[in-house]
């Protein structure tokens, strides 16, 4: 595996509510991301995947744990990280509607990061950079003088990508970048992202609830449930040999079109129940109430992550060594 650009160790992010309750949005998550790699972080809504993204970019400080970016700890830095780090770790948000200021042209939106990270750039150089950024994401230069309302969701999302590229990032957090888009446009945005990654050696933390998307995009896939990791594996391994009962449930719920695809899928496991509230996480394994293969120990004891085959980790009592 290539060099580590990001190491998250035992990250916890708790939010205190008014009535003395705590939301354990992220509870002891460890992840690694290599240079030029894509890590797919998959989970249902409320599983804490966006919270991880926000801690990484500095919107929140971590409650506990370490975030090592190129060896430097960012867990407690929040927004007080260096300007260089702010430029190198960028984010593309889910909602293309609110990513761009509706009252400003694309040119103005794209010059925002340039004014901060390329101080003293002359006006013509600035315009040239805007042109380059638009070209990089495959949009015509005329888009610079348009307003966001004159564009489609996919185009706006590409502009968000272009804006993230403006500061020469090495780690881009993609927070469900395509879930608000039409399927036909999703493919276009994804293929652009993949091409850019190769060209610029970007590392992606790709957050999504769409597992099938990960098959084509991710090098590694991690499954998050109620703020805890269930399973983490190289993408191929993950789709061939899913181990965690929750992963199997998710994989079997992907709709398929052809019979070959049908054969690849694990036996149908009906999804039962809803994801519990993160305020009130069940004791033991967080998933035990919805689990088909529940053991007596599951309700009592929280399982730990263990490696079952090289690079393939699972957090489940079924795979205890004995």
């Amino acid at each position: 595996m290539s060099d580590k650009i990001l190491e998250i160790k035992h990250l916890k992010k708790y939010f205190a509510l008014k009535n003395r309750l705590t939301v354990k949005a992220v509870d002891d998550v460890s992840l690694e991301l290599g240079k030029g790699e894509t890590l797919g972080l998959v989970g249902e809504s409320g599983s804490g995947k966006s919270t991880i993204a926000y801690v990484l970019v500095g919107m929140y400080e971590a409650t506990e744990g370490d975030i090592l970016y190129k060896g430097e700890d960012l867990a407690k830095a929040g927004l007080y990280r260096t300007l260089k780090q702010k430029g190198e770790i960028q984010i593309v948000f889910q909602d293309p509607g609110s990513s761009l200021n509706p009252k400003r042209t694309i040119r103005k939106s794209l010059t925002v990061p340039l004014q901060v990270h390329d101080k003293g750039l002359s006006k013509p150089r600035m315009d040239a950079r805007v042109g380059e950024l638009l070209e990089a994401v495959g949009l015509p230069a005329e888009f610079a003088d348009k307003y966001p309302r004159a564009m489609g969701g996919g185009e706006r999302q590409l502009i968000s990508v272009a804006r993230a590229l403006a500061t020469h990032p090495s780690l881009v957090i993609l927070d469900e970048p395509t879930s608000a888009l039409d399927v036909s446009i999703q493919a276009k945005v994804i293929s652009k992202l993949v091409a850019l990654q190769k060209e610029l050696m970007l590392s992606y933390l790709f957050i999504t609830h769409d597992l099938s998307l990960m098959r084509n995009v991710a090098d590694r896939v991690a499954i998050l449930y109620l703020g805890r990791l269930c399973e983490q594996a190289p993408a191929a391994d993950f789709f061939e040999k899913p181990l965690h009962p929750y992963t199997r449930m998710l994989l079997s719920s992907i709709p398929v079109a052809t019979s070959e695809e049908e054969e690849l899928k694990p036996a149908k496991i009906l999804s039962t129940g809803e994801i519990p509230s993160p305020v009130n996480v069940p004791p033991g394994c967080a998933f035990h109430q919805r689990c088909k293969d529940m053991l007596p120990v599951c309700a009592a004891e929280r399982p730990v992550m263990r490696e079952v085959s090289p690079g393939h980790e699972v957090c489940c009592h079924l795979y205890n060594a004995n």
């Binding site: 970019v57 500095g58 919107m59 927004l79 300007l83 702010k86 430029g87 960028q90 984010i91 948000f93 909602d95 609110s98 990513s99 761009l100 200021n101 509706p102 009252k103 400003r104 103005k108 939106s109 925002v112 990061p113 004014q115 901060v116 990270h117 804006r163 500061t167």
Partner: peptide, 24 residues
Amino acid sequence: NYIIYAELTGVKLPHIIFREILPN
């Protein structure tokens, strides 16, 4: 998101107030 983006990228407060919020 565009305000959050500006904060995360290190944009200064006057820019956020006069260039991002004021036009709205």
